[in-house]
Design a protein around this nucleic acid. Structure first.
Lengths: 141, 141
DNA sequence: CTTGACCCTGTAGCTAACTTTAGGGTTTAT
DNA sequence: ATAAACCCTAAAGTTAGCTACAGGGTCAAG
């Protein structure tokens, strides 16, 4: 199949598919005489793999690594694969922790604000951000 | 004080301070005859505000908005400020939800992997990512 | 009176993952 | 035969938030 068809079947934009090729994530199976890219069902499977990997947070570089492990399954161990996954898991957890701290801190100062129509002259949110003497959310982290 | 001093006292890099000026976040109070930027204690306070706002997740554009509200407190209501904060809170919560789904999905497929030295021929992680027939983590979302 | 620390402007580069633009060739249907 | 739909390449633009570079002026101490 040609690139437009692959795009339709996978939901990836044509430009994105060409970009993935440049990044080494998906090579066309061949080219027609006129230079058109040709793909097959393997391409489809690979793109599903890429989609799944993206959905759990892997970057394109990491997916590239995973794809190598995938095609060379025999030469690689489960631990290699699991290491990559656990590393990513840790990154995601760290990000969640960081965002949770932000949320907690922001919640505290937002909740304290009346939110009414009166002028913000003594608005607790502005005051809290103004107050450089202590870290916002210090109590929570 | 000059930019180097301000940098030292706030921890912001000199280049960052000049960048903030271009972005409209912090104007120097004046310039010396030779064109050097001059700042005062107000600049210091404003940078602390910026730092606090950054720490709870606001973008520079949003901080710019907040700074306007801060200086024009009288002309604006608490609800305006609170709206911005609550919007940001929602964005952060959405991001946390998204990342949590990723974490859960990734945890499930990673936990199932033996992680041993045997070849990854039937590695559950690779298989899970391969399987385009169902969404990774479908059970959890 | 010169050396070193400091300051200036303007522009370019960085990251990630695309998207857009410009300019042009191919295929298919009528 | 011609127009629409499709495909190609290479390069530049997008986002945010800086960071670095080139080339040059200013200021205080010894």
């Amino acid at each position: 199949m040609k690139i437009g068809e692959l795009s339709k079947q996978t939901g990836f934009q044509i430009e994105t598919l060409r970009y993935y090729e440049k990044q080494g994530l998906l090579q066309p199976v061949s080219r027609t005489d006129s230079g058109y890219r040709e793909y097959d069902v393997e391409s489809l499977k690979q793109l599903k793999f890429i989609h799944q990997a993206k959905s759990v947070g892997f970057s394109l570089n990491e997916i590239s690594e995973l794809l190598t492990l995938r095609v060379e399954r025999d030469q690689h161990s489960c631990s290699e694969v699991k290491n990559i996954a656990e590393q990513k898991l840790e990154q995601i957890e760290n990000k969640i922790t960081e965002l949770s701290k932000m949320r907690d801190a922001l919640y505290v100062i937002t909740d304290a604000c009346c939110g009414g129509d009166e002028p913000a002259t003594t608005c607790t949110i502005l005051s809290a951000l103004d107050d450089g003497s202590k870290q916002v959310g210090a109590k929570l982290s």
